[in-house]
C-alpha cells in the first residue's frame, strides 16, 4: 500500500485545490465546488468510520434479531418484518436500535445536521 501520499492526503490535496480555484468560478460552479468539497469530506468520514460503523450496526442488528449474518442480509430481514407488521414502534428495543444505527450513518453523511428529541 502506498502511503506517500496516503488516501486521506490525496483527498485533502484535492479539497485544497478546489478551495483554491473557487474564487475564479462563476456562481453556479462556486456552488458545485462547495458540493464537491462536501462530497469528498463525506468520503473522508466514510473511510474513517465506515468499517467500524458497519461492524457495530451489524452487531446491534444480529443481537436484536437473535441471529448472525451479513449486514445487508440482516437489514433486509428487519425491513421484511417491518413491512409485514410483525414488529412496530412498540416492539422493545426497536427504536433504540434504529437510533444507534441512524446516528452512526448521520455522523458520516451530515455530521452538522441539527435535530431535536422533541421532533
Amino acid at each position: 500500500m502506498s502511503t506517500h501520499p496516503n488516501t486521506f492526503e490525496i483527498l485533502g490535496a484535492v479539497i485544497q485545490w478546489i478551495e483554491e480555484i473557487q474564487p475564479q468560478l462563476n456562481e453556479r460552479n462556486t456552488f458545485l465546488a462547495r458540493v464537491a468539497v462536501n462530497a469528498l469530506a463525506t468520503v473522508e468520514r466514510e473511510l474513517e468510520m465506515g468499517d467500524s460503523g458497519r461492524a457495530a450496526a451489524k452487531e446491534r442488528l444480529a443481537q436484536w434479531l437473535k441471529r448472525s449474518g451479513e449486514l445487508e442480509e440482516l437489514t433486509r430481514e428487519l425491513c421484511d418484518r417491518l413491512r409485514s407488521g410483525e414488529v412496530d414502534v412498540s416492539t422493545p428495543g426497536l427504536l433504540g436500535l434504529l437510533r444507534s444505527n441512524t446516528l452512526m450513518q448521520l455522523a458520516i453523511d451530515q455530521p452538522r445536521y441539527r435535530h431535536s428529541r422533541s421532533g
Partner: peptide, 16 residues
Amino acid sequence: RRISETEIDLLNLLEA
C-alpha cells in the same frame, strides 16, 4: 446522503 437526516427526524417524532 440527506436521507439519514430525514431518518433521525422521523425517529425523534416516533419516539415522541
